[in-house]
Design a protein around this nucleic acid. Structure first.
Length: 716
DNA sequence: TAGGGTTTT
């Protein structure tokens, strides 16, 4: 989520949840700072909590291969520790210190900040590397990168031999790539004992990382092992014993990984709870917001709700309620914040309010970690979040409103204490806490892991079931991924990568179904078009839905509509963008298209076309013969096939599951030209919705995917 | 018939 262009800092936001001062973090490539600024930098660095522990940290890293930093926000760990390491000589002899971040924006802006403190030009001694954007040289000594980017580098250099230290920052977020990285780093350690690993994690989760590096045998899920016995009021479900647990006893080498606690700089946040649960969360939010507004004179309010619909209703009710305020009372200016907004609407959140006006930001989970807004004094927390989960049996995703974990609640409350003492109003009774999980289940246990499995295979890790996962995906999840990759032709009967298909699929940064389609697309005579379709299906929110004018948006979208379905409609929109709007965000705005998303699709398409060239796959256009594209899509999306029912609903071909067309599909308002369709994915919210739907012929399914349905039959 | 939490290669 980029709210600002790289090279600038968003107004009122901060980079690292650490100390950032606006003047010095501001735009452009930093020049070499003068002597006076250098002194100021060194004083500011010296005041950070981590400065006191500099020598202790360096000593521990000499002695221990793995150091876990348990650190609340505001310690300066992301900016300072890499500098300590640099000063202590860990980047001598051409070696480099890598620091991973789960998000692009963080990798870029922290690198900027550190380059400035070090007094170098960004991209030289200190640099960054994220997809489509890198500013570094082979001589770079401190490199900030996304965790996905470092994982990709392992595919090229399996021992990460150019790095002396790898610091995994924000590890508690447990992104899938962070988890993969941890497993592989532990493996690399055995071959490269001199490699140093630093894991930085928020408070609750830190012990889990120590345990992970100190255990000698892989073990299955320990989702909640971060609690000390005395704190364990929320008993976790018993960890499942995996088959290898029974064979071998754990023998922890206790000095492998050590933990260091760092003091934060956060201000205290007082927490308040409701006495009774509420049945109308939006109304309770509005009441609480106005209660704060009338009782407390200053300070902005951050509200956490679950989704766009709730946020819009909340804003509407705040506007209604505002009319009832006593005359002369200060006003409220409320802003929505979620990922579907246009860039302009997102930036509005950072602007200071007019005098005598209080800012209220009504946000999804995006404000929990991805976006930091300064000046928040009050947090109003619904205690709920929408979490995605993947069902390996049906192959479908669900997006379900769930109570937050305790870690999540703590993180949200902390948003009120960044600049002064704050207060957090949790809109549920305190008694509900004991039913909550300590931490959110890692992403890797809730997602389709086919691509990750493919990439691990490509690293030469043959036995995926015995990989040392920090938290193992369920065996159903693993088995399904293996079975599906076999059906796609990426794995052979022994589970080895096929050549060249499987090897190439592991390299491509797109969904395995789509990568199979792309790699075969020349034989269908439409690789040019499939490149675009693949790029378009890997970006979200191409059609803008915000600003309340949904009818206009709908009318604009219909201008691109193609009868054959959503994939070809996306192709159409992309081609129009290239023709008219590539350099004009105005053209996009007029047609309710997301300029940023389409520009990203362009970058992805360019990247994918480079892969095709390297694989010697010719880029051929099918012209106006769109049936070729639909046939080609069928060859990879065969698992996702459905057939229309007389009542307008669909049944999946594979299991006969009831499916609905998502309202964003062109087939929501018109009937497809044939009764069979393929779709990109199913998301279950209020119903099971098919997204990105394209009409196909039944014969194609038999011709191009007969093997899959036969395979499924014989297994039963 | 009426809807999408967030992130990444």
């Amino acid at each position: 989520m980029a709210f600002w262009k790289p090279g600038t800092v968003a107004p009122g936001s901060s980079i690292d949840r650490d100390t950032v001062n606006q003047e010095s973090a501001g735009g452009g490539a930093p020049a070499v700072t003068g002597r006076i600024e250098r002194i100021a930098v060194s004083e500011r660095r010296g005041r950070l909590p981590i400065a006191k522990q500099r020598d202790a940290l360096l000593y521990l890293l000499e002695r221990h291969p793995v150091v876990v930093l348990q650190s609340p926000t505001g310690t300066g760990k992301s900016t300072q520790l890499p500098q300590f390491l640099l000063e202590a000589g860990w980047a001598k002899d051409g070696k480099c210190i890598a620091v991973t971040q789960p998000r692009r924006v963080a990798a870029i802006s922290v690198a900027q900040r550190v380059a400035e403190e070090v007094g170098c030009i960004l991209g030289e001694e200190v640099g960054y590397s994220v997809r489509f954007e890198a500013l570094c040289t082979p001589e770079t000594k401190v490199l900030y990168l996304t965790d996905g980017m470092l994982f990709r580098e392992i595919l090229l250099d399996p021992l990460l031999s150019r790095y002396s230290v790898v610091m995994v920052d924000e590890a508690h977020e447990r992104s899938s790539y962070t988890d993969l990285l941890l497993g592989v780093l532990k493996k690399i350690r055995r071959v490269r004992p001199e490699l140093r690993i630093v894991i930085s994690s928020a408070t609750i989760e830190a012990q889990e990382f120590v345990d992970f590096f100190n255990r000698t045998t892989p073990s299955s899920s320990h989702p909640n092992s971060g609690l000390k016995p005395g704190e364990d009021v929320h008993a976790p479900p018993p960890a499942k014993k995996s088959r290898w647990d029974k064979k071998e006893k754990e023998e922890p080498k206790l000095d492998e990984a050590v933990m260091v606690r760092l003091e934060g700089k956060a201000f205290p946040v007082e927490i308040a709870y409701l006495e009774e649960p509420t049945s109308d969360i939006v109304m309770k939010v509005v009441e609480t917001v106005f209660d704060i507004h009338l009782k407390h004179p200053v300070g902005d309010i951050l509200v956490f709700l679950t989704g766009r619909d709730e946020i819009d209703r909340c804003l509407q009710q705040i506007a209604d309620y505002q009319h009832r305020l006593p005359q002369g009372a200060p006003l409220i200016k409320a802003f929505p914040l979620h990922s579907g907004l246009s860039t302009e609407s997102q930036i509005a959140v950072f602007e200071p309010p007019s005098p005598r006006t209080r800012k209220v930001i009504v946000s999804t989970n995006i404000a929990e970690a991805s976006v930091t807004i300064d000046g928040i004094k009050f947090v109003v927390d619904s205690g709920l979040v929408k979490l995605r989960s993947f069902d390996p049996v049906t192959g479908m995703d669900a997006l379900v409103t769930t109570p937050c974990s305790l870690a999540s609640l703590a993180q949200r409350a902390g948003r009120a204490g960044r600049t002064s003492p704050g207060k957090c109003f949790r809109l549920f009774p305190a008694t509900a806490l004991k039913a909550l999980l300590p931490t959110t289940p890692p992403e890797i246990t809730r997602s389709d892991i086919s691509l990750l499995v493919l990439q691990l295979k490509s690293l030469g890790i043959q036995n995926i079931l015995r990989f040392d996962w920090m938290t193992s995906p369920s065996s159903t999840m693993l088995e399904r991924a293996l079975e599906f990759l076999y059906c796609l032709g990426a794995l052979d009967e022994e589970g080895k990568l096929t050549r060249p298909l499987g090897v190439r699929m592991a390299e491509l940064p797109i969904d395995p179904m789509m990568s199979k389609i792309l790699l075969d697309s020349h034989s269908f005579g439409c690789s040019d078009e499939i490149l675009t379709v693949a790029a378009m299906t890997s970006v979200q929110n191409v059609f803008i839905l915000d600003d309340g004018d949904s009818i206009r948006g709908e009318l604009e979208r219909r201008k691109f509509t193609v009868e054959e379905g959503d994939h070809l409609t996306a192709l159409n929109a992309y081609n129009a963008f290239i023709k008219h709007g590539r350099k004009s965000s105005k053209w996009c705005h007029n047609h309710r298209l997301n300029f940023k998303a389409l520009s990203r699709a362009l970058s992805i398409r360019t990247q994918l076309s480079k892969y095709l060239k390297r694989f010697d796959i010719p880029i051929i256009s099918c012209g106006s013969d769109h049936a070729k594209i639909r046939r080609c899509l069928t060859s990879g999306y065969f698992r996702n096939a459905a057939v229309a029912q007389p009542d307008g609903t669909y049944k999946s071909v594979r299991e006969g599951a009831l499916l609905h067309v998502h309202p964003s599909s062109v087939y929501f308002t018109r009937t497809p030209p044939s009764s069979f369709v393929i779709f990109h994915e199913v998301i279950e919210t209020t119903k099971r919705f098919m997204r990105e739907v394209t009409a196909i012929e039944q014969d194609w399914l038999v011709e191009l995917a007969g093997h899959y349905y036969q395979f499924r039959e014989t297994k039963r």
